[in-house]
């Protein structure tokens, strides 16, 4: 018995694992030059801003220096200074870091809520689904930007946490709707039915059996959402309803361009941030589109 066990263990341990979804995705990204470049760019920017910002003195950057207002780029200030004499380059680094952080945070939270909501509605179906979808319909119809701005301006003790919570509260519906319609299909498949006959509790079927089968959809959607969320955050900060004053984001730099003087004559303040936002969103999308192709066998390139 023990020998048999050992022999079995040896056999079992020597088996190679089958190629997983991860390696397929990896192959697809490697094949797609644009996605590869985008990924490298993203990794580079991310490590750079998180790495460099450790050494940057935030207080130094946001300190107002009235003798250095609106200086054009120079060797002291690589990208010039803003109306408070603050170094634009430093703000760009910190801003990118803050924008990325909030992008990741909001994407993760909306993903968590959206997936749970969509999975529950789709998996249970019937009346539960009906009621949940009415709730979702209502959230979708709300004028998102206005509601968020109102909440941002009336919430007491406004902080980054409350900002991301407000954004999350009105952004989880897209992914929820996608996951729900996929879950509706999955629950009818025999493997989910089989789990029921095997005595697996429903919540376990939902998270243990159905969830892995919608995981690729989740990854793709969340990647594309990340791009959108970076854009939304910078838009809100641009209008002055994003990050609190003392923490600059990429949108904060752009908001200086609301002053026509700055927009017309001092491009160095807002242009780099605009280009950076564009490049970040473009590369995240490129990676997302490659993931989408990787998870859809019909669209795979090789």
């Amino acid at each position: 018995m023990d020998n048999l066990q050992k022999e079995l263990d040896n056999k079992i341990n020597n088996i190679e694992k089958s190629p997983s979804g991860v390696s397929i995705i990896w192959r697809e990204i490697m094949r797609d030059k644009l996605a590869l470049i985008s990924l490298v760019f993203l990794l580079l920017v991310t490590t750079l801003v998180y790495g460099v910002s450790i050494f940057l003195d935030l207080d130094e950057i946001v300190k107002i220096d009235l003798f250095a207002i609106h200086e054009p780029p120079s060797s002291d200030f690589w990208l010039g200074t803003d109306y408070g004499g603050r170094d634009v380059f430093g703000q760009l680094i910190i801003g990118t870091r803050n924008s990325l952080t909030i992008g990741f945070l909001v994407t993760l939270m909306t993903g968590l809520i959206g997936v749970t909501f969509g999975l529950t509605a789709g998996f249970f179906g019937g009346h539960i689904d009906n009621i949940m979808m009415r709730v979702l319909d209502f959230f979708i119809i709300l004028p998102f930007l206005m509601i968020v701005i109102v909440f941002v301006s009336i919430v007491p003790n406004y902080s980054i946490i409350s900002f991301s919570l407000i954004m999350t509260a009105f952004l989880w519906m897209g992914i929820a709707r996608l996951i729900r319609s996929k879950a509706l299909q999955e629950r009818e498949l025999d493997y989910a039915q089989a789990s029921k006959t095997l005595g697996t509790p429903r919540w376990k079927i939902m998270f243990g059996q159905v969830l892995p089968n919608v995981s690729s959809l989740i990854i793709v959607t969340m990647t594309l959402n990340l791009a959108a969320n970076i854009g939304l955050e910078s838009g809100l900060s641009f209008l002055g309803f994003g990050f609190p004053e003392e923490t600059p984001s990429l949108g904060t730099l752009l908001s200086y361009a609301r002053n026509p003087q700055t927009l017309e004559n001092r491009w160095w303040i807002w242009m780099p941030a605009a280009i950076l936002i564009f490049l970040l969103m473009l590369s995240v999308r490129n990676v997302g589109e490659a993931l989408k192709r990787a998870t859809d066998a019909r669209q795979r390139r090789g």
Binding site: L232, S234, F238, L263, E264, W270, A274, F278, M281, R285
Partner: peptide, 22 residues
Amino acid sequence: TYVGFATPLFIFALVALWILGF
């Protein structure tokens, strides 16, 4: 469309105003 998806409206509007307006 690819580029359009990646461009936030407010940035595009700013750039358009800067170039065509100013």
